[in-house]
Amino acid sequence: MAVTIIDVAREANVSPSTVSRVIADSPRISEQTKRRVREVMNQLGYYPNFQARNLAAKTTQTIGVIMSDSTSLAFQNPFFPEVIRGICVSAHASKYGIYFSTGGTEEEIFQEVVSMVQGKKVDGIILLYSRVGDRTMKYLKDENFPFTMVGRPYQYEDEISYIDNDNERITHEVVEYLYNLGHRKIAFIGGNLDFVVSIDRLNGYQKALEKLGLSYSEDYFIRNDVIKTNGMKAVHQLMELNEPPTAIVAHDDLVAYEVIRYLEGLSVQVPGDVSIIGFNNHALSAYVKPPLTSVDISIVELGLEATNLLLEKIQDSEAAVEHYFVPTKIIERESCKRITTKKKRE
């Protein structure tokens, strides 16, 4: 027969309500009583029914985590395990569980979020992306349901709590870094412009070129859909230009790995013929050939701080809207080199 709260109360010589308060870690119960009751719980093998307790308290002690793609596809990107690691650290510290979305399309993800909200399956939600015109984000905002975002919202920025990197600024710094290495012909590859992170990085690239007196050329920009569907041909055309780039900014490390593979197939050396830099600083970036220079965007911290913001909103529905950027840093490795401009003979 299963051990009940009454059995624990009888053995500990306290009332069942006292046992319940010990389980809830109530400050009204002395530490001495808590220790005695917990010892009895361990001796008898009693495990509190947190699900029933949460139902009574109208809480699930669970947060929903929504990715931009199906779970199986998302986990192919090293970004997601890292950001989820940060979420888990914060959630575990506050005794919260995690409910992952499993939808495979935008519509399926939207319907799953509606089910989470209407079915009261979670206390709050973290969106691990920011998409242009995202109906899921608008639904959560309109429902006044607790949620936070990893990424700057495309709309309603002053009404939504979020954590992000200053993607425009750091991309500006990346271009300046390459410029200071002597590069003047700098290309930009990848980035789905349905997502705000891609828009911000492209804007940072373009503004940096303008500031440095370099002209922007569409020939130096390969879009995400092109690199995915016909990457080898696109990179080949890029390197066959009359003035091919001497440096490439890749939207993230995964794109950089892919581009390096294409360049290798074209017998173009990195960094001998062209330098390349990515974003995210995945663990693999130190071990690819050549080791990739990349921007560390503090992925774990993104997840941790987004969860902290969400828990504040869950605990206080009147909590102020907050948003801030976590630190970023260029990690120099071997995929970028300094070049010198040959002086013309007089």
Rank of each mutant, 00 (worst) to 15 (best):
V300M: 15
V270M: 06
S285W: 04
V268P: 01
Y287L: 11
D273F: 10
I276T: 00
A286L: 11
A286W: 10
V288I: 11
L302Y: 11
L302W: 11
A283H: 14
F279E: 07
S298W: 12
Y287Q: 06
V288S: 09
V300D: 08
Y287G: 03
D273L: 04
N280E: 15
N280D: 15
G303M: 05
P291K: 10
G303Q: 07
Q269M: 13
L292K: 07
S275T: 00
P290Y: 14
A306Q: 06
V268K: 11
I277N: 07
N281C: 03
L292R: 08
I277L: 10
L310M: 10
G278Q: 04
G278F: 02
Q269W: 14
Q269Y: 15
L304F: 09
N280V: 02
D273V: 05
V288Q: 03
E301G: 04
A283L: 14
S285V: 03
V274C: 06
N280Q: 13
A286S: 13
S298N: 13
A306R: 05
V268C: 10
N281L: 00
V274P: 01
I277H: 03
V300K: 14
L284A: 14
I277G: 00
K289N: 15
N281P: 01
V274G: 05
I299V: 00
P271W: 12
N308W: 11
S275C: 02
N308M: 10
E301D: 11
E305S: 06
S294E: 10
L304D: 03
K289R: 13
A286K: 14
A286D: 13
E305I: 01
L302H: 06
L309W: 13
N308E: 09
S294G: 04
T293K: 02
S294D: 10
S294P: 11
G303L: 09
I297F: 04
G272P: 04
G278S: 08
N280R: 02
N308R: 15
A306N: 11
N280A: 09
D273S: 04
T293E: 07
V288N: 07
N280W: 08
S298Q: 08
I299T: 06
V288T: 12
V270L: 06
S298H: 09
A283D: 14
P290N: 14
V268W: 03
L310Y: 14
F279W: 08
N280S: 14
N308V: 00
T293A: 04
T293D: 01
V270W: 08
I276A: 09
G303K: 06
N308A: 10
E301N: 04
L310D: 09
P290C: 12
S285Y: 06
S294F: 09
A306G: 07
E301M: 12
L302N: 12
F279N: 03
L310A: 09
V274Q: 03
S298T: 01
K289P: 05
D296C: 00
V295Y: 15
A283V: 12
I277T: 02
D296A: 06
K289F: 14
D273N: 07
A306H: 08
Q269K: 15
L304T: 13
S285R: 01
T293H: 05
S298A: 14
V300P: 03
P291M: 09
A286I: 04
